[in-house]
Amino acid sequence: MKPDTFRNLIRNPLFWPCVTLTLLCAVNFYFNRGFFDIEIKDGHLYGSVIDILNRAAPLMLIAMGMTLVIATRGIDISVGATVAIAGAVAAAMIGGSLVIKDGVQTYVSNVPMPLAIAGALGVALLCGLWNGLLVAGAGMQPIVATLILMVAGRGIAQLITEGQIVTVYYEPFFFFGNGFLFGIPFSLYIVAVVLIILLLLIHRTALGLFIEAVGVNPVASRFSGIQARTLVFSVYAFCAVTAGIAALIITSNVKSADANNAGLLMELDAILAVALGGTSLAGGRFHMIGTLIGALIIQTLTYAIYSLGVPPEINMVVKALVVFGVCVIQSPALREILAKHAFRTREVA
């Protein structure tokens, strides 16, 4: 390989996320030779890789929304609470019970499922509009503005569930989190659709440019005629909607809504995924695909910890070390030191 192409490859923002993911997969493969095996059972694909993808779906969704928020110099730490609220709404609206009618088991939902889904997503959107209002309208610091919903959100979710864990008994709803379509988990289709819409918006409209411009220099962007407020407002709304979709998958997956634990620490995972994907937490240039890889890294890491037989709680320690590692590698200070070193060696040569 020519040194130039190699340098370009390393400079590619997706290079390090990909290397990390590959390494993690290699670790998994070392401990579990069946890691890459995929088998077909009942027309469904099964295997560790599929499992990781499926489980990473909610995180991927939220992280995509978070990427846009972070790109505008913001942050949304309320996504976990939004997941709890939307999940509670979905579960409460669907609820459902098993009715035996004429000797046939049928599942009846409280309200029609499409309505329940619209309700859950609508409530999520409301959460996003609220955040957007505080950030873009009142001009609060994003971390403060979203902290409010983060603190109050779980209380609201409990208000909806009345402090109980609401169980869902409506079979068709389980399709979101557990269903398969053409052999592939249905959740992945949701991720794919959201991703395609996003990529189209970013690359086929000026949205990507505007978001990056606002992230790098909000004032200059506004002075250029970009409606920065509207943009920031919409970005928070969108992020909350991705959290709402994730909430549907999570609720469907565990067949219940737990206001206390649904989406717990999800905001942190999502931010971590964005950072791992190579997007600077200071805003500006962002990498949507990188974020997806970041989410997969987190899920693969979790999987590796499970398969190593370490207690799953250790996961947090590992994640913490990953956070520190990624941040230090991304840090301008370290780059400066490395650059100085490189400069010196070039001088010597």
Partner: peptide, 27 residues
């Protein structure tokens, strides 16, 4: 030290600290 010398955001560093300390509890 991480915040000051590596110029990292306090938010993200202490988030890492949060994971680390909770994780160590479970250890």
């Amino acid at each position: 030290v991480l915040i000051q010398y590596f110029e990292l955001q306090p938010f993200i560093v202490t988030l890492g600290g949060m994971f680390l300390a909770r994780g160590l509890c479970y250890v």
